[in-house]
Design a binder for these strands. Structure first.
Length: 320
DNA sequence: CAACCGTGGCG
DNA sequence: TCGCCAAGGTT
């Protein structure tokens, strides 16, 4: 057996063997469901959040994909409460039912499922089924931008780079290593180029790592001023299950534009920031029954999935 | 295809 | 304090 050549891939895998995050629970299972669940939870969400607050409780409640499929959507949303991007939970439930608790094993079939795009399909393919395809998450993107000196965020160029660097013999280790490298060494603000196994041929290191990728143009987020209405009737609170795209399926308090005829007793102010707008709201208590709401004892609210804003409103009410 | 979709941590 | 953004996908 001839000695292994020194390639970016071998350097990367050697680094990964020593410094990789090998204790992550979704790296210590062959269960496609557990890998799939981690990939969905981790979309646009930091590892620590998923690891410390959501992954294990969800698996405790739903040990298999079939458990997800057979559960009411409301229970899945309740387990997702606080994690955000709730479409992920609704797609997870839909996909569990669509594939009857058994995930398909090809990239084409995975990508056809709701909530699974190209990168997630590749991640499941590589991590659960050993398919030789690259992933393109935020960590890998940053490594590729810098390594190849790519300023443009153009998708085609990044996928081409991803395939160019992929170690087709070790897709599992390679992809995990690239994510760890992006998360631990090739980090956004202060990359540790001295510790990087790819530093020899890295274009970003030779110039300025922070120039890759080119910074995004920033967009301003508007603020909406709302009345946040806590309806109360015979000791119960009136809520609605939202049907809007935002927070669909979650329960919450009625929101109304602030105009010249604000009812109720002022309870306080709450503010909340979403990705693309903010809410400055004043919480008001209104005693009386109105149509179109469902009424719950305060204790019963614990069984409902509420958004973080609605938890703030509830806390404001309970503080009185 | 640019906007939309949640939340929390960090500099 | 505040803008940025993280194991992205959908419309």
């Amino acid at each position: 057996m001839r000695p292994m050549q020194k390639t970016p891939q071998t350097s990367l895998l050697k680094w990964y063997a020593r410094r990789g995050r090998h204790t992550l629970p979704w790296r210590n299972t062959r269960d496609p469901y557990r890998i799939y669940l981690s990939e969905i939870m981790l979309q646009q969400t930091q590892v620590a959040t998923v690891l410390e607050r959501f992954y294990f409780p969800f698996l405790e409640k739903f040990p298999t994909l079939l458990h997800v499929a057979q559960a009411p959507l409301d229970e899945v949303l309740k387990q997702w409460e606080g994690l955000g991007y709730y479409t992920r939970a609704r797609n997870l439930h839909h996909t569990a039912q669509a594939c009857k608790g058994q995930l398909p094993t090809t990239i084409e079939a995975l990508i056809a499922l709701k909530g699974i795009g190209r990168s997630t399909a590749h991640a499941i393919g590589a991590f659960a089924f050993g398919i030789a395809v690259p992933i393109l998450d935020a960590n890998v993107r940053r490594v590729l931008h810098r390594y190849f000196g790519i300023e443009s965020r153009d998708e085609k160029g990044l996928w081409a780079a991803a395939y160019a660097l992929l170690d087709t013999q070790h897709p599992y280790e390679y992809n995990q290593a690239m994510m760890d490298l992006g998360a631990m060494v090739c980090i956004k603000s202060t990359p540790k180029c001295d510790d990087c196994p790819l530093h020899e041929a890295c274009i970003g290191k030779e110039s300025n790592p922070l120039a890759y990728p080119a910074p995004k143009p920033k967009k301003s987020a508007p603020t909406h001023h709302l009345a946040l209405l806590v309806y109360r009737h015979e000791g119960r609170l009136g809520l609605v299950q939202r049907t809007t795209r935002l927070l669909q399926g979650l329960w919450g308090f009625v929101q109304a534009p602030i105009d010249n005829a604000i009812e109720g007793v002022y309870l306080g102010r709450v503010s909340h920031q979403y990705s693309h707008f903010g809410i400055e709201g004043e919480v008001r208590l209104i005693d009386g029954w109105v149509e179109g709401l469902e009424w719950f004892e305060v204790e019963a609210l614990e069984t409902l999935a509420l958004s973080t804003l609605d938890h703030k409103i509830l806390a404001c009410y309970l503080a009185q």
